[in-house]
Amino acid sequence: MGEPILRLRGLTKRFGGLTATDSVTLDVVEGEVHAVIGPNGAGKTTLVGQISGEIRPDRGRILFAGQSITRGPVHARALLGIARSFQITSVFLDFTVAANVALAVQAHAGHSFRFWRDAASDDALIEPAAEYLGLVGLSDRTDDVAATLSHGERRQLEIAMALATAPRLLLLDEPTAGMGGDESARMIDLLRSFKGRFTILLVEHDMDAVFALADRITVLDSGRILVSGPPDDIRADPAVRQAYLGDGDT
């Protein structure tokens, strides 16, 4: 078993009377796909937000690659190698598909205080961008404006942008949300092709996706970790069946 790249220690976040994250202690091992599941309101997105830096935890620590990042700003964590996709797709809608990814490449290619040269013809940005777009299967949409992409394609674009930041950890918040069966299957295939190459923390509602991809599953309920372990154990766990898997196929 590999080393944990991300360690959460006693992470706690309260919103008024609601404890969205309740003493969460968790390790994400390098090279693994670690899925976080749980019913709506279990605190999954809040947890992701704390790791990416958009939400400040009230207590606890976040260690990434051995370094404390509990209080660092979002962009600093991104530069350390934490890339995320959002539950609600978030791309630069008025940019071309290529420019979206080029900007992500640029973010990790030194400072952007370059005022004169045309970025759209800068091979140092365009070539890697094309490569990542090929990886997610968007090569034929390169010059289209992102707003013209379908929902599924925007999700793919988001993944390409995440890859372009040379991530050491991918935080994927419901990558198949709102997708049709076909699109969803394609996304799962894409993510499966990442297995072993990237460390992924996957928040997902779609149980097919979770059991197809995850090396390890953590079940959250009301902000607490109910149980954490390999997929087979989770499937067999009576508490999980009752709290989550039991209530239908959500």
Binding site: E54, A78, L93, L103, A107, S112, W116, A119, D122
Partner: peptide
């Protein structure tokens, strides 16, 4: 014209388009 099309300009236009995303890809907006 040059500034807007440069890397710097891309960041500034990105801030108009989606500032949250800009931070998430690692740019100190």
């Amino acid at each position: 014209k040059r500034l807007v099309a440069s890397r710097f300009g891309l960041v500034i236009r990105g801030a108009r388009s989606n500032e949250r995303r800009l931070a998430a890809i690692g740019i100190p907006v």
